[in-house]
Simulated scan of single mutants.
Amino acid sequence: MKTIDVHTHYVPRGWPDLARAAGGGDDWPWLRADSERDACIMIRSQEFRRIRNDCWDAEARLADMDADGVDIQVVSPTPVFFSYTRPAVQALKVSRIFNDLALEICAPAPDRLLPFCQVPLQDTDAACAEVDRCLAAGHLGVEIGNHVGDRDLDDEGVVTFLQHCAEVGAPVLVHPWDMPSSARLDRWMAQWLVGMPAETHLSVLSLILGGAFDRIPESLRICFAHGGGSFPFWVGRADNAWHRRPDVVGTSEHPPSHYLNRFSVDSVVFDDRALRLLVDTMGAERVMVGSDYPYPFGERPVGHVVRKADFLDDASRELLLGGNAARFLGRALVAR
């Protein structure tokens, strides 16, 4: 069984001046090259994230994959480039730029580096058209952010996009992004430590309590990054609220636990106790290895917690390491 990492990111070695290519102001991300191997994503004059060549260099990625025993990576955008707050025409231009660059990054190892695209999710028609273009060009699926401003995943436009992904067979990875900022959340990277799990929890609930899963075909393959956030721990609380206060809690046809077979989560929870909860809640068929590679908050060696978890039998471990991901990627993986 091959080991498949469904949650990794890329950043190109460079990209066109986005203000010139897409229009808009001077607050587009740009890359400061510090050396052949080191760079920094910048927003105006502020450092957003320091990165290394494992973000763009296929050879560096493959060396790390070999060291960790990973056969295949799903390579997805870094959310700072989503551009959902921009006019849709600008976000579409940016999506096309980065989607084409992603194909170049993955081209040296097409059987091992599998690109996912990004789309201008604020415009449903444009998002559907771009995912179609990218599937035809060689992408295997799409990564989306967990919300567009105040519109969560049960928004009609987003639901229509997810219905389209189900129709065309595009697997969807949902990644938290654009976390709230405050004096309390700006300490200790709490936006990442607290905000990301909360954002993901909220968006899983939106698909359930907003009735979206009741309107989206069961053929949709959708995975939430970062272990589904805090949702797996609190599904019992959500069920209790659905039963006790149906007048105010959601419009779903069934309680939240009914929908656990409608989505998957990755395994990047860093602790075998958390992984046990994840498997007990979601089922061994709904958890896939993810790492958040190559970022420093990611898991290395990739899949370490899954491999050492003594509560998993061999069959379940194989599902988590690759079997579930092969099913998630579907026909597109077979075609490779």
Rank of each mutant, 00 (worst) to 15 (best):
D5S: 07
D5E: 09
Y10I: 11
V11E: 10
G14S: 15
W15Q: 04
W15N: 02
L18G: 03
L18S: 09
R20V: 11
G24P: 03
G25R: 11
D26V: 03
D26T: 10
D27F: 02
W28K: 01
W28V: 03
P29D: 07
W30Y: 01
A33I: 14
S35D: 12
S35K: 12
E36V: 06
R37G: 05
D38V: 02
I43G: 02
S45Q: 13
S45V: 01
S45F: 01
F48E: 02
R52Y: 01
C55K: 04
W56K: 11
D57S: 14
A58L: 04
E59D: 14
R61D: 03
A63D: 07
D64N: 08
A67C: 05
D68G: 04
D68M: 04
D71Q: 07
D71S: 08
I72T: 04
I72L: 06
S76L: 06
Y84C: 01
T85A: 08
R86I: 00
L92D: 02
K93P: 01
L101Q: 14
A102T: 06
I105T: 15
A109R: 13
P110A: 15
L113H: 02
L114M: 14
Q118D: 08
Q118F: 00
Q122A: 12
A127Q: 07
E130G: 05
V131L: 12
D132V: 12
R133Y: 03
A136K: 15
D154Q: 08
D155C: 03
D155H: 05
E156A: 14
E156V: 04
V158R: 00
V159P: 02
V159E: 10
T160W: 00
P171L: 10
V172L: 09
M179Y: 06
S182H: 09
A183N: 15
W188C: 03
M189L: 14
G195T: 09
P197I: 12
T200H: 12
V204N: 03
S206K: 08
L209A: 15
L209G: 09
A212Y: 02
A212W: 02
A212G: 13
D214P: 09
R215S: 04
P217N: 07
E218G: 14
S219R: 15
A225D: 09
R237K: 14
G250T: 13
S257A: 13
Y259V: 10
Y259M: 09
F263Y: 12
F263W: 06
V265L: 08
S267Y: 02
F270D: 03
D271V: 07
R273I: 11
R273M: 12
A274I: 12
R276M: 08
R276E: 05
R276D: 01
T281K: 11
M282K: 04
R286N: 10
V287K: 01
D292G: 11
Y295N: 11
G298A: 10
G303F: 00
L312P: 00
R317E: 00
R317A: 00
E318H: 03
L319D: 00
A325Y: 04
A326M: 07
R327L: 05
R327P: 00
F328H: 07
V334F: 03
